[in-house]
Nucleic acid binder design. Sequence first.
DNA 1: AGTCACTAGTTGTATATACACCTATTTGTC
DNA 2: GACAAATAGGTGTATATACAACTAGTGACT
Lengths: 145, 145
Amino acid sequence: MAADALPVLACACASLRRAARAVTQLYEAELRVTGLRVSQLTLLQALQRMGSSPQSALGELLALDATTLSRTLRPLARAGWIRATRGHDRRETRWSLTAAGRRRFARARAPWERAQARLRTRLRPEHWKLLVEDLALVAGAARRA
Amino acid sequence: MAADALPVLACACASLRRAARAVTQLYEAELRVTGLRVSQLTLLQALQRMGSSPQSALGELLALDATTLSRTLRPLARAGWIRATRGHDRRETRWSLTAAGRRRFARARAPWERAQARLRTRLRPEHWKLLVEDLALVAGAARRA
DNA sequence: AGTCACTAGTTGTATATACACCTATTTGTC
DNA sequence: GACAAATAGGTGTATATACAACTAGTGACT
């Protein structure tokens, strides 16, 4: 199994980016049938989880720059999968899933789980934990460093 | 320290991409004084390590799509930091660092190490190993999955 | 030699990402 | 209430990333 590894890079950033590229390609391939990009599914997952939430809160959860987020949300709204409402503070935009968005999200579930499984079965159990738990620590650390 | 973590995401791909974004922003900030982007420094590091190497080998090492690589190499060549030679097989392009490239790489060393240190001191020691060693396994696994 | 499959790399196009800067709104202070 | 500082979000621009389709060179089989 370790024979399949790519060479270790000295740079932590390069290591992360390389892994992100490789894993993204795997997920995009599985998600292709859904018509959703990884970035879009990630946003639907975040909204499913958070319910109605301000745009800025989505950006913090995903460590996404506000401008990137702004442009990624737009096509989801155009497709009718998410809906914007205005809060008391009228600068603020709150987003929530529409019924169509929930359906779309449900239809993407099986392909997403195939991607998760495809990767997971290739890894030792502790590496899965690394991905989903320890990287949450790393992301938080980098944000505040 | 764990109080600084971002919430755990269910999707391994989203977790990786979020961490990559957060860490990239940290490194880009430190590298700004060098005039090099993370992607460019990563290529110079790879060439420093591999010596003269075919373009395709660089792509495999970094899990970079050939088209992405092609367009990332071009500005480095234009800046005179890398040089192309042609192999026996005349389809193949081999790249190596120029003297100017080695100088540039040397000047970027201190800022790069500051970025590494800034992240590293925020992490528990085992997390550093996870980043540079275990992510090499993850990247390899995803590639072959 | 002809040709067909394969491989290395590029071009066209689309999405992902973020910085600098902008507008609209809110809030704190006088 | 007036107004400066702070905040939410968007625009302009530049780079990062990759798929589909392409060109050009290689090699194998006849």
